[in-house]
């Protein structure tokens, strides 16, 4: 049975391989053309094949050469930060800059591991909100609604 000797390289290889297959198959639907008249599919197919080859090399090296393991991640920062971004994206048009900024800072604060200092965090979120509204909307004149349009 094959043993994975480098978790990092093995999974990096798998990742690039998957990207390459995805890219090449999708690109084959576009017109590939000929070398003298390259179609829109030519370059992506080429790049997809390159990714597959590189992915295979990295994957095989992960099986044969010992290397570092993947450091365990912490779910809390990742989930909170990504959630903050998605929330901002969904709210900015409807609720406006003030509400979105406040929520982003709160979620960001929760992302930091350890006990959440709710009072100080809320105070900071409020301060950041006022700062962002003044800076972006009033000083820099960005066309962003403070309270949302509809």
């Amino acid at each position: 049975m094959l043993r994975i000797k480098s978790q990092q390289n093995f999974w990096a290889g798998v990742f690039f391989l998957a990207c390459g297959i995805f890219e090449a198959t999708l690109a084959l639907q576009y017109d590939v053309g000929s070398p003298a008249a390259m179609g829109p599919g030519f370059m992506p197919v080429l790049l997809g094949i390159a990714l597959v080859l590189l992915g295979l090399i990295i994957l095989l090296s992960g099986l044969s050469v010992p290397g570092p393991a993947i450091e365990p991640g912490h779910w809390r920062p990742v989930v909170c930060i990504i959630a903050a971004l998605v929330l901002f994206a969904l709210l900015i048009n409807k609720a406006g800059l003030a509400v979105s900024t406040f929520l982003v800072v709160m979620l960001g604060g929760i992302a930091y591991r350890g006990k959440v200092p709710w009072l100080r965090l809320s105070a900071m979120a409020l301060g950041m909100t006022i700062f962002a509204v003044v800076l972006f909307v009033y000083i820099l004149g960005q066309p962003i609604a403070v309270w949302g349009s509809s």
Partner: peptide, 17 residues
Amino acid sequence: RWLFPGILVFCCVGVYS
């Protein structure tokens, strides 16, 4: 801990605008 939420806000508004 008090620095990165600010960076986060700048990133969001920056990309959006």
